[in-house]
């Protein structure tokens, strides 16, 4: 008597499980469908190698490189800030700090990741940029260094907690062997632990870059909206994500080529982050197995 009800519930629950597959399929179908239409008008070659991006001007150019370099530039700056800080936090918490300090500090660090990104954008624009301008002459009001630094602060907890897990997973015997030979903690960390935990640390780096590449509001607020093909961190640039927001805020007619650019740009963004996430998942599974 209860059987049909049980079956129905299982079916309903299974449908929710399927929803996650549909979400992924939905993203893929939409990006591919709209991009195909976009590439009917713009050659893939031009898109991938052109150094000018002006779809919203009367003389339209569709080279994605300026958006791509801006995206990479801001992300690399963020990593340059977050990696040394995050990694040294991980080492300190794992090897030097006592348990109590660790359990108090870890949730505090998570606060850095919970601050809304518009707030970080505001910090970059109104605090970091003027501060940097005071000693970097010629730094524009919009630039990639300031949002890059702030993004770096945001992803510190990501690097520190993932690297800490990786360091923690190194077998105690290795550590003991190193101390047994008279090594200091510092030597143990840099000669034994970091090399052993390297794949886990690389996972944290990849995930952090991927997060920075997809980050939108910080760069939209503080990096500007001018597609510049440059690696100069002092001038305004426009990232892929900023461009998508810029088009969404404007009055671009639907089904126009300008409108479709956001799907083509989104496709590039999706592919990059997808590849990075899966490389990190693959590495993670690999090093988990290594110590089992």
């Amino acid at each position: 008597m209860r059987r049909p009800k049980e079956k129905l519930i299982e079916k309903l629950l299974a449908m929710s499980g399927w929803l996650t597959i549909l979400t992924t399929l939905g993203i893929l179908v939409i990006l591919v469908y709209e991009s195909v239409q976009f590439f009917a008008d713009v050659s893939v070659w031009e898109f991938l190698t052109g150094t000018e991006w002006t779809p919203l001007f009367s003389k339209k150019e569709f080279g994605i490189l300026p958006l791509l370099t801006a995206t990479l530039l801001t992300s690399v700056i963020a990593l340059l800030v977050a990696l040394p800080i995050g990694l040294s936090i991980a080492i300190y918490l794992n090897e030097y700090a006592n348990r109590k300090f660790r359990s108090t500090v870890k949730p505090m660090l998570e606060v850095l990741a919970s601050v809304p990104t518009v707030v970080y954008g505001f910090f970059a624009l109104t605090i970091i940029t003027p501060f940097l301008q005071s000693f970097i002459p010629g730094l524009a009001g919009f630039n990639s260094i300031s949002p890059g630094i702030v993004m770096g602060i945001m992803i510190i907890p990501m690097i520190s907690s993932l690297s800490e897990d990786a360091l923690f997973a190194v077998p105690k015997s290795l550590r003991d062997a190193s101390y047994g030979m008279g090594a200091t903690r510092f030597q143990t960390v840099f000669r034994v632990l970091i090399p052993s935990a390297s794949s886990g640390i690389i996972v944290s780096i990849i995930l952090a870059i991927s997060r920075a590449i997809g980050e939108t509001m910080i760069v939209a607020i503080a990096a500007g909206q001018q597609p510049n093909f440059t690696f100069n961190p002092l001038v305004p640039v426009e990232t892929i994500t900023t461009y998508i927001v810029q088009v969404s805020l404007g009055d671009v007619p639907r089904d126009s080529i300008e409108y479709r650019t956001i799907f083509a740009a989104g496709m590039v963004l999706f592919i990059i982050t997808f590849v990075m996430n899966n490389v990190s998942l693959w590495l993670k599974r690999k090093y988990h197995r290594q110590y089992e």
């Binding site: 996650t20 597959i21 979400t23 992924t24 939905g26 993203i27 939409i30 990006l31 709209e34 995930l207 991927s210 997060r211 590449i213 997809g214 980050e215 939108t216 994500t241 998508i244 927001v245 969404s248 956001i262 799907f263 989104g266 963004l269 999706f270 982050t273 997808f274 990075m276 996430n277 899966n278 998942l281």
Partner: peptide, 20 residues
């Protein structure tokens, strides 16, 4: 698939929502 969805940039979800 779920591990992947966690890593998809939020703006891409925006694109999905916009189209669908």
């Amino acid at each position: 698939n779920i591990s992947n969805l966690v890593g998809v940039p939020s703006v891409i979800y925006g694109i999905l929502g916009l189209a669908f």
